[in-house]
Amino acid sequence: MKKTALYNIAVVTLALIAACIVAAVQPLFFSRENLANVACQATPLVIFAIAQMIPILTRGLDLSQGGVVVATSVAYALLAQQIGTGAGIPLALLTGFIAGAINGLLVAGFDISPFIVTFGMGSILQGLALVAANGQPISNVPAAFAAPFYAIVFHVPVPLIVAGLVAVFAWFVLEKTTIGRRIIAVGSNERAAFLSGIPVGSTLVMAYAMAGVLTSIGSILLSSRISSGHPTAGADTALQAVAAAVIGGVSLFGGRGTVVGAVAGAVFLTFVGNALNLLNVSSFFQYVAAGTLIILAVVADRLRNSSDNFMGRTK
């Protein structure tokens, strides 16, 4: 526990120092406009990171996120054309729910590696999205289509409200409900969870279904941001979301991670990209920076894990 607290303090301190250096070189970094930009830019990734965290907590992974994003995007656009934006959103969210539930059923029912199951599901959804959209972006959508990202309610941009609600919802489920505690238990030690009577199968199905729905919510923000249904934009979502979650301290070994951490990881990654843009750092070099951060985060995770084992358990 002490190690974890120390880690958190170290990360926050380093982030603040980095922010001060950037602000000294480029004063625009802390301008109101820029902070507002970054906050909105970060919202889809924040939601994707929270969604991704839930299967990771069960010691799994959801590589179908990219597929869910593009399939939801195309579904949202087609539905918006047919029955309107308002009615289209809940139906589009079903895309993620169904895909997630199937992921969960396969992982739990056949005891297959989530890596393979979700990878396959992602590919299926990617293909279906291309077929449904005929390989083209769907752009002739109603004007309200872009509202989820660009509308402002009581002076607050809607994407911030949506991301906030998703964060509170996920926090509530994980911290305050039985299903949340079961998810953590399954991820910490699946065998022990099973022996203590936790229904591991249904817990996994719930976890993946929840990840799917939340990913679909993020996809609706993303589609609205680009004001079109797009069969390929966002296909690399899963890896970015994993990176954000890991940087936020969510452990790939399962059972450990917080919503606050996932949100912080996503916001941090977005800020890094923004800072490098404002400092005119080549976008090629930005990959190096992002990759370095991700590796550092995983190494830190590993160190925390092994030291906890060392102190807390006997082998």
Binding site: N37, T232, A233, G234, G273, N277
Partner: peptide, 13 residues
């Protein structure tokens, strides 16, 4: 070409 949201962020930046 798929990184449309990324380009939108760059326009804003």
């Amino acid at each position: 070409y798929d990184n449309i949201a990324k380009q939108n962020s760059q326009i804003e930046d």
